[in-house]
């Protein structure tokens, strides 16, 4: 592999842009294809299809066998609330390969001391999400219990077709939340997309155990989702 290609590929990955490393399995030559690059002929069709599906694999074209390693942006988990659960969930999600962000306007909670080396936004979701919009590669977990902070983010997550939307709170709390969101204009049929009470039912008790339950549910949503969102986005 050409060292320049490796550097270029890692730069694309760090920028959350899709890229394909194309290797000719016959002679070992490789090239980096960024999303949007023009690739001629039969290979162009194969490349376009690979970007759409996000799947790596081999393909024959022009009498040669190529391997396409497709790199799409990693899934991202946005936590609303710099709370105790987030302190466990953020590092766990990072280990599991997620990009992460933590948003909480309460500066007593959102401190670098409580979240060392984590992307922390001590501001309202309204402000942060305007600059950093959600997308279908993103999961949102609302964890503050505070409607003033959680509700906007939940509505934004539904609108952005986030692959996972979850909200902390009891069934009673959630019923009240559904009433508020629908009164605020969110379609009632969308409410079923919110996982609440949040997390797989494993009897989690401590904040760290709840973080495990949430992360497992997020991974479940990621790995069982239909590919149509990605196809539609292409």
């Amino acid at each position: 592999m050409d060292p320049h290609l490796l550097k270029g590929l890692n730069a694309e990955r760090r920028a959350r842009r899709a890229a394909i490393l194309l290797t000719d399995l016959g002679d070992g030559r490789d090239r980096l294809i960024r999303e949007g690059d023009q690739v001629a002929g039969a290979l162009g069709d194969i490349v376009a299809k690979a970007f759409r599906s996000g799947k790596s694999g081999s393909a024959d074209a022009e009498g040669r066998t190529f391997f396409l390693n497709v790199h799409v942006p990693p899934p991202r988990l946005v936590m609303i609330g710099a709370v105790h659960i987030s302190q466990a969930l953020a590092p766990m999600a990072r280990i599991a390969g997620f990009d992460i962000a933590i948003i909480d306007p309460r500066t007593a909670f959102a401190t670098p001391d409580r979240f060392p080396d984590m992307p922390l936004h001590a501001d309202w979701p309204e402000t942060v999400l305007k600059e950093n919009p959600l997308d279908s590669y993103t999961a949102v977990a609302a964890l503050t219990h505070d409607p003033k902070i959680d509700d906007f983010a939940l509505k934004a997550a539904l609108d952005a077709r986030c692959f996972y939307v979850g909200a902390l709170g009891s069934r009673k709390t959630h019923a009240a939340r559904v009433e508020r969101l629908t009164a605020g204009g969110a379609p009632r049929e969308e409410m079923a997309r919110i996982h609440a009470p949040i997390g797989l039912d494993i009897g989690a008790a401590s904040p760290a155990e709840i973080a495990v339950a949430v992360l497992a549910q997020v991974i479940g949503a990621l790995r069982t989702r239909k590919t149509e969102t990605r196809d539609a986005a292409a």
Binding site: P3, L9, N10, R14, A15, R16, P74, I95
Partner: peptide, 22 residues
């Protein structure tokens, strides 16, 4: 948060390969 992806430089194989090469 949308702008930068955190490649785990201690576990991401391609990031490590780049480091080793450097």
């Amino acid at each position: 948060m949308a702008d930068v992806s955190h490649l785990d430089d201690t576990r991401d194989p391609l990031a490590i390969a780049e480091d080793w090469m450097g």
